[in-house]
Design a protein around this nucleic acid. Structure first.
Lengths: 167, 167
DNA sequence: CAAAATCGTTGACGACTTCAACCTTATACC
DNA sequence: GGTATAAGGTTGAAGTCGTCAACGATTTTG
């Protein structure tokens, strides 16, 4: 079952991209990154949440208490941006902000029970999106692709690097 | 030799992204797509041009005469967006717009000699960017990655599909 | 000849990111 | 202890960007 409503096939096939662009893995990566974003956004539409919200809930779901700063640093978000995202999560009752008694500048952010339920829903959605996006590949190819992407991410997105503790 | 000036390494390693995000090929694709865009933009900075300009020049370099509409359709650009891009290319003398005598609504766009030279420069730059971005992978891995990405692109970015004529 | 469609152009609009300023609170230093 | 400095969170401004509707000119349709 598809997460997104399929688009009607265009009556005429789209014009061909220049060969040199299609031959570039970097180019394909950029286009596919965009396509992945679009597919994801479409799938999230019904939930009223944003992929950003999912990432935040995931961080909070890992157990260790988080401040807004640590969330922002972990995900690479702007702190000003995070404020609005947390406002939205708090309005929906998925998250709780309270002052840290040890350092009253800080806000400690925690999942509420509703937040944990929402996180589970989003995990399922995320799996569905992944499955739909990778549909052309079998299990072996998916693993191979992930391995290769991870090798690139370790250079270009150090936050993705697998920590020693996690190995 | 690097195309972009290397960033100073942060004294502290960035915080760890949640495992489930890093485990998702879709997520890595989105982040890497963004990283690729940033790397590309940085490399293009000196040239005063934009990757969009390169794509346009590539289309024009393929020989068959192109109108603004056909360029936009080929690359998936908005027509209104293309106007400004072509203005910039024309200002730099890389491109010529002239009315199509057969259909005076259309503009036929052609490369100038300077445009062909610029295209060659950008081809070289593009190769350097590709090489730098894929640095963690050897030749075999690069081919494998490209194959996998292309399989995905055939579904998600039909313009990337290899045409029968091209096979 | 009139109506509709096409092509390129312009400008408005909303979404998004980045950034600087600000208030509160904690830490460093004299 | 008191003052300067830094850090956490918040707000709002600014700039970028893609999307889109409307327009004049021209061609096609009927």
């Amino acid at each position: 079952m598809s997460v997104t409503t399929p688009q009607p096939a265009p009556s005429f096939p789209a014009a061909q991209l220049p060969e040199e662009l299609v031959a570039s893995a970097t180019f394909l990566l950029k286009r596919l990154g965009f396509a992945a974003k679009e597919l994801t956004m479409a799938a999230y539409e019904k939930s009223g949440l944003h992929p950003y919200h999912y990432a935040i809930l995931l961080v909070l779901g890992e157990g260790s208490p988080e401040t807004q700063g640590s969330i922002a640093d972990t995900l690479g978000y702007d702190r000003g941006q995070l404020v609005g995202l947390l406002d939205e999560l708090e309005e929906r009752g998925l998250v709780e902000r309270r002052r840290d008694p040890n350092d009253r500048r800080r806000h400690v952010v925690r999942l509420t029970p509703d937040g944990k339920r929402a996180l589970q829903k989003l995990r399922t959605l995320s799996r569905q999106i992944e499955d739909e996006f990778l549909a052309p590949l079998n299990e072996t190819d998916r693993r191979k692709l992930h391995t290769l992407l991870l090798r690139l991410a370790e250079k270009h997105e150090p936050r993705c690097a697998i920590s020693v503790a996690r190995r």
